[in-house]
Design a protein around this nucleic acid. Structure first.
Lengths: 128, 128
DNA sequence: TTGCTTGCAAAGGGTTTGCATAGGA
DNA sequence: TCCTATGCAAACCCTTTGCAAGCAA
């Protein structure tokens, strides 16, 4: 756990948004001005492989989440904003999938698409 | 609906795999040797925007599915193979998400990760 | 020293885009 | 003719990688 890795993890944990690698790079740079984007990518890779953070591979740019517990996300199709959902996990989901597909199931991701409150408001005001 | 778009749609419908844009390009080229990758991308874009096909934005390369009905997928983390799952859709999922997130929910994607039968067999034989 | 991590910069690879041309209404 | 879609190639952008230098054990 190097200084760089620690700061990356801390900054990711601070924000509730789900930043892209580049956004996180900008945040981390305020503390470590000489850090490189490559290092950010490398550490995000390691952290997600060890299960300390979550990697969100939706459409567009990859995003990261310091909350590694399995939970679901919703992503705004207009602005790209991604939020956590306070929703119960669906029980027995992976067992069912294993039964249906013959795979050895190791995980799952559930992502909703929609329009976030801010974009809804914007669309409303423009419609007037 | 141009000739190109028709052939792209037909070829996509023929295969049960979920090809990448490039794989589909190879297939389509057998019938339209002068078609370009750009055209394939452009048409896949249009087709998915109009809801005629599905766009799968998991990790790695984008994949496409001629079956636009909502259904779930499982993707092999070793070889990238993607299969449909014969699984009941989860009822009221989007209503629950809307309640939990304040978004206007327009859709969702559920994707499982796992190891496909072929890769399981390969891993087994190598372990011996 | 030894081995891993960094910073830097270049390469990589999938996807998008500009533009002149072709084809259909 | 007018307009849209195409082929071609270049541009784009995010991500990965090679390598020499740095740091810790």
């Amino acid at each position: 756990m190097t200084m760089q890795r620690r700061v990356i993890l801390e900054e990711l944990a601070k924000v509730t948004s789900h930043p892209t690698a580049d956004q996180l790079y900008q945040l981390v740079r305020r503390q470590l001005p000489r850090i490189s984007l490559g290092t950010v990518y490398r550490n995000l890779d390691i952290l997600s492989q060890t299960g300390m953070i979550l990697r969100l591979d939706g459409e567009g740019q990859r995003r990261f989440d310091a909350n590694a517990n399995n939970h679901y996300h919703i992503c705004c199709t207009l602005c790209g904003r991604t939020d956590d959902l306070q929703m119960k996990l669906i029980p027995k989901l992976e067992q069912n999938a294993a039964k249906a597909g013959g795979y050895q199931v190791t995980g799952h991701q559930l992502e909703f698409q929609g329009i976030c409150p801010a974009c809804l408001a914007k669309a409303d005001s423009q419609a007037e």
